[in-house]
């Protein structure tokens, strides 16, 4: 069965996107990417720290992947725009994950500032994938502003608590004509499969892989879970039957026809 994900016209072969933060050692990353079969990989930008030796993170990434720098650290639209423009200068390509976080306690994204950033960056030719709190109206504004996909959070970043926002994400999947990519909160492969069974176009996983005892094995497990969940979605699961209710017939009056 032909089942390809397209984002901004580009075919993406894996529905598992992975993040490269929080790894104990960059040396793990090539094996993690290979085991997960991920094609879209996120990176971040930071000021150089003169105290520690610098290495070129990009050299750990295979050449055929799609790099997606994020704008982490941005607290408002202007900062996100600035970071996105810098990211493009690195030669990472046009993809950018907009992440605007003005709340340092829960690390929840600021949907309003995110919309503003999308408006500017989409016009500049970026392929913009906004990380957001799942809200239908905000997602619509983001789509109108030119987002290429919508990335609602399953639960707050790094919490590994699974898809607590299930009902709201389900609404986005039904109503928004863009790929919905569940980002943040997915802690186990079973939760990635759950997102895919719901009809999500892809999931983005970082912490759960990076902090596993064996990140490479976990990356492989996530890759398989995403594929399994997608197949389950495509096959149209027969949901559990509702408990039969004893009720009087409602169509009895038609029998005399």
């Amino acid at each position: 069965m032909e089942d390809k994900l397209y984002i901004a016209g580009r075919q993406v072969d894996s529905r598992l996107f992975i993040g490269t933060g929080k790894f104990a050692d960059y040396n793990l990353i090539p094996a993690v990417i290979k085991a997960s079969k991920a094609q879209v990989v996120t990176v971040a930008l930071r000021r150089v720290d003169f105290g520690t030796p610098e290495e070129n993170m990009l050299k750990y990434l295979p050449p055929d992947i799609i790099l997606m720098p994020n704008t982490s650290g941005a607290r408002n639209a202007a900062e996100a725009i600035r970071i996105a423009r810098i990211a493009r200068e690195t030669g990472c390509g046009d993809w950018v994950k907009i992440e605007v976080i003005s709340d340092q306690k829960y690390l929840l994204p600021d949907n309003f500032e995110t919309v503003k950033a999308i408006e500017v960056l989409a016009k500049e030719g970026f392929v913009v994938l906004p990380y957001m709190s799942p809200d239908l109206m905000a997602a619509k504004r983001m789509a109108e502003a030119g987002a290429a996909a919508i990335m609602p959070l399953g639960s707050p970043i790094g919490t590994n608590r699974g898809i607590k926002t299930r009902e709201l994400i389900q609404i986005l999947i039904s109503e928004i004509n863009l790929p919905i990519i569940v980002d943040a909160g997915i802690g186990r492969p079973s939760e990635a499969a759950e997102a895919m069974e719901m009809g999500a176009a892809a999931v983005l996983v970082n912490t759960a892989i990076a902090t596993a005892e064996n990140p490479v094995l976990m990356a492989e497990a996530f890759g398989q879970a995403v594929e399994a969940g997608r197949k389950a979605y495509l096959s149209g699961p027969g949901s559990t039957q509702r408990v039969a209710e004893a009720s009087s017939p409602l169509t009895g009056f038609l029998r005399k026809e």
């Binding site: 389900q170 039904s174 149209g236 027969g238 949901s239 559990t240 039957q241 509702r242």
Partner: peptide, 12 residues
Amino acid sequence: ASQIANILAKAE
């Protein structure tokens, strides 16, 4: 018939 039964059990 089983398809109809499945549809009737679906949320959406």
